[in-house]
């Protein structure tokens, strides 16, 4: 205390209440951070531990028990993991690409100031966000369109996220109109205005939306389960992971020889499938945070 006062003579001495509040907050936040971090650490430690020790381990794991990469070897030897990875990469790239094109198109149209049907169409779109059909009519529609058990069933129906569309519309309509007027005087066409003025000026918003779409595709599994009942080869990584991590642990009846690896494979598969998110997350975190604020701004 004394030292900090010397450094900053204007600082008021902390009262007892200050000390209690500060300590409580720091302790609580530290505990919460540990709670948020520990599960992934546990999985990481278990995945590089000795498979036999993992099998008989119980309770918290604070450090790897023994060291073995057998779990990773067994995981990476599975065909379905690689196939799932390839499929997910396809869904993420093609899906996000389509998402961005459609979202920019829709937002561009809805942000034009003199476009007469703007209000009617906004209502038409927002209504669909709050009155949704259950999965049954959706399933029958996919069946009717012959999209069931094809890749496109995971890409086309979700081509636009309405919330992202509205965020993008707000961003585009905030571009100062003087810029567009100047461009028109210079003889720019609509497309030139879109590509040389609107898109560069809303790059930050677009990056955020792109990230949300991409993470959404990466983590998606439910539609794949519902709409790809007969196409195991098209399963995204998360659905493969579900089979390894959840379905298997619910019926532990398979008496395979290599079964003692089962637990380790589970942990290794989680790490393998979450690694990309964990690697990019610290660097992109601030964009996601920006995204929350964008979403809260009403268009």
């Amino acid at each position: 205390m004394v030292r900090s006062n010397r450094k900053n003579p204007n600082r008021i001495r902390r009262s007892k209440e200050d000390i209690v509040v500060d300590t409580f907050c720091v302790v609580f936040i530290t505990l919460l951070s540990l709670c948020c971090l520990y599960p992934m650490l546990h999985v990481l430690f278990a995945s590089i531990s000795d498979p036999v020790k993992v099998l008989f381990h119980s309770g918290p794991m604070l450090w790897p028990e023994g060291f073995s990469l057998a779990g990773y070897k067994a995981t990476l030897a599975r065909r379905d993991i690689w196939l799932g990875y390839a499929n997910t990469i396809f869904y993420v790239t093609v899906g996000t690409g389509l998402n961005m094109v459609m979202t920019v198109i829709g937002a561009y149209a809805l942000s034009r100031r003199d476009f007469m049907l703007k209000r009617a169409l906004s209502l038409f779109i927002v209504f669909s966000m709050y009155f949704t059909a259950s999965i049954i009519p959706n399933y029958l529609l996919m069946k009717g369109l012959h999209l069931l058990n094809t890749r496109w069933v995971l890409i086309l129906p979700g081509a636009i996220g309405t919330h992202n569309l509205l965020v993008m519309r707000t961003a585009l309509s905030r571009v100062p109109r003087e810029l567009e007027e100047a461009a028109i005087l210079d003889g720019a066409s609509d497309m030139q205005i879109l590509f040389h003025i609107l898109i560069p000026l809303t790059k930050a918003t677009m990056a955020v939306i792109l990230l949300f779409y991409a993470v959404g595709h990466w983590n998606a599994w439910f539609n794949a389960m519902a709409f790809l009942p007969l196409a195991k080869d098209l399963y995204p990584l998360q659905l493969v992971l579900r089979q390894i991590v959840i379905t298997n642990s619910q019926d532990q009846s398979t008496g395979d020889v290599a079964d003692f690896l089962g637990e380790s494979v589970k942990y290794a598969a989680i790490i393998v499938s979450t690694l990309p998110i964990l690697c990019i997350y610290p660097f992109l975190q601030k964009y996601f945070v920006k995204g929350v604020m964008l979403g809260s701004v009403k268009g």
Binding site: C36, V245, I246, I270, F288
Partner: peptide
Amino acid sequence: ISYLPHFISLVVVCGILI
């Protein structure tokens, strides 16, 4: 760190929970 769990997929979260 506190935002992190939001980005972990539901399958992984539920797998860890189980």
